[in-house]
Computed example of a mutant assay.
Amino acid sequence: MRQKVIYSATLLVSSLLMSNTHAASFSCKAAKLKAEQKICYTLVLNDADVRLATTYQIVLHALPMGGRDAEKDQQFKWLKQRNACGSNTQCIQRAYQQRQQQLDLLLQERVLSHGPF
């Protein structure tokens, strides 16, 4: 049963990603920071941004109220870290990989393992 839930969550995330394949999770027209501009014009970073934003929203909505504020704080800290990369593609990509792993783990441990599935 648990594998079915994980598979369903993966399908949901995948379908959301496919619908937004070439659109960052923020307005590229309003992008002022070097990191944001790099994300808008680099497909692999753009895709990572959309995937992370989608996972983050799923986690945020599934967490209990007390956990949401803590996760929002973590996301804010992570954004500062990502933005400190400037236009360094490898640095931005590493930041996305690390944060995605954190969110995937949180989704697995705190959300999917406790859900009413």
Rank of each mutant, 00 (worst) to 15 (best):
M1T: 02
M1A: 04
R2C: 09
K4N: 06
V5P: 00
S8Y: 13
A9L: 11
M18V: 10
M18D: 10
S19E: 14
N20H: 10
A24M: 12
S25H: 09
S25V: 05
S27D: 15
A30F: 00
L33A: 11
A35P: 03
A35N: 03
K38R: 05
Y41M: 08
T42F: 02
L43K: 14
V44S: 12
L45N: 05
L45Y: 01
N46R: 15
N46Q: 15
N46I: 06
D47S: 04
D49P: 11
D49G: 12
V50A: 08
R51L: 15
R51N: 14
R51Y: 15
T55N: 11
T55R: 15
T55P: 01
Y56V: 04
I58T: 00
L60M: 14
H61L: 11
A62H: 02
L63C: 02
L63M: 06
M65G: 05
G67T: 03
G67S: 03
G67C: 04
D69A: 04
A70P: 01
A70Y: 07
A70H: 07
E71T: 06
Q75A: 05
K80N: 15
Q81H: 09
N83D: 15
A84H: 03
G86P: 01
S87T: 05
S87Q: 07
T89G: 04
Q90S: 15
A95I: 00
Y96V: 09
R99Q: 15
Q100L: 14
Q101M: 09
Q102G: 02
Q102S: 11
Q102L: 14
L106V: 08
L107V: 02
V111F: 01
L112Q: 06
L112T: 07
H114Y: 12
H114S: 12
G115V: 12
G115M: 13
P116V: 04
P116A: 02
F117K: 00
F117M: 02
